[in-house]
């Protein structure tokens, strides 16, 4: 995404589409529009003399607020729009491009609308939620630009199913290889077999911190036994040791994959619920302003 497929000057045939990410869509058309809008608003904010000072309740403040709420509703509509994939002038890509850049310009519109007056009230709550949505979106764009490459290089041509199957194959071999082991060693192997490769919760997923991984622990324990003995080739513990090695490598790859996917997905868990929270806070903000008018 976000990469221009070709910089050559060969003319495109009619109907042929050149791959162009939504960030670069139509030569940054929406970036220019949103940037121009923001600049216009910043300049007009500085030039227009509102007494006693700028706030959301002046004519200028109401104008910004109206633009802001319209924009927020339109931006939210991407959630509906994205379900209908179309091309052309009002293509989904154009829509997404506008969503990104107009969403960013909302930082300027919303902040100027506040007149830099903040407090512990529903108005600032709405502002805070809006900023949360925008910043999570900004994060989303960033990881969409950066992470897919890392994700693809980590997969090394394996699909998710293949990764899981590889792990299962190692587990089966481990299970078989551990059959001759004494109960203590067998229990260590079983610990590794019983480990949920997808367990650990959100924090583990995002940080990729698996220091207390039981497979690693089991491996370490078995190593302690095998390291002092010569490898004669007939020790079942040596085989288990080698298998645990492979399992650890496989787990590491799987976990990197899970972490990258979690980093790619987490922002939507903020962006989407915060958007709806914002719509609720915005409703409360607008109703309360006119209620105590």
């Amino acid at each position: 995404m976000a990469t221009r497929a070709s910089s050559t000057h060969t003319p495109r045939a009619k109907g042929e589409t050149l791959h162009d990410g939504f960030l670069r869509h139509a030569g940054f058309r929406w970036a220019k529009i949103a940037g121009g809008l923001s600049l216009l608003l910043v300049v007009s904010y500085a030039l227009i003399d509102i007494t006693p000072r700028h706030n959301g309740g002046s004519w200028y403040g109401y104008t910004l607020g109206t633009i802001g709420v319209g924009l927020i509703l339109w931006l939210t509509a991407l959630g509906l729009r994205k379900r209908a994939m179309t091309t052309g002038r009002w293509s989904l890509k154009a829509w997404t491009s506008a969503h990104v850049y107009l969403g960013l310009s909302l930082i300027v519109i919303g902040t100027l609308h506040t007149g830099f007056q903040f407090g512990w009230n529903v108005h600032t709550l709405a502002y805070g939620l809006m900023m949360l949505v925008i910043l999570s979106g900004l994060y989303g764009i960033t990881v969409y630009t950066v992470l897919p490459r890392a994700l693809s290089s980590n997969r090394s041509e394996m699909t998710q199913g293949q990764m899981l199957d590889a792990l299962r194959a190692i587990d089966r071999q481990l299970h078989d290889a551990a059959q001759p082991l004494a109960q203590e060693d067998a229990a260590l192997v079983r610990m590794s077999l019983d480990q949920d490769p997808f367990g650990g919760g959100l924090w583990r997923r995002l940080t990729g911190n698996h220091r207390d991984c039981v497979t690693t622990q089991a491996h370490r324990e078995l190593r302690r036994a095998t390291s002092t003995r010569p490898n004669l080739g007939n020790d079942p513990l040596e085989k288990v040791d080698a298998l645990l090695d492979r399992k650890e490598a496989m787990l590491a790859q799987l976990r990197r994959h899970l972490r990258l996917r979690a980093l790619l997905e987490i922002w939507l868990y903020v962006h989407v619920p915060a958007t709806f929270a914002l719509l609720a806070a915005l409703t409360a903000h607008i109703v309360s302003v006119f209620f105590y008018w």
Binding site: R168, F198, R205, H257, R261, E265
Partner: peptide
């Protein structure tokens, strides 16, 4: 093993 259990791939690989 745990990994060998039946899993919904869409569920476990995503958040």
């Amino acid at each position: 093993s745990d990994a060998a259990e039946e899993r919904d791939e869409h569920q476990v690989f995503s958040l």
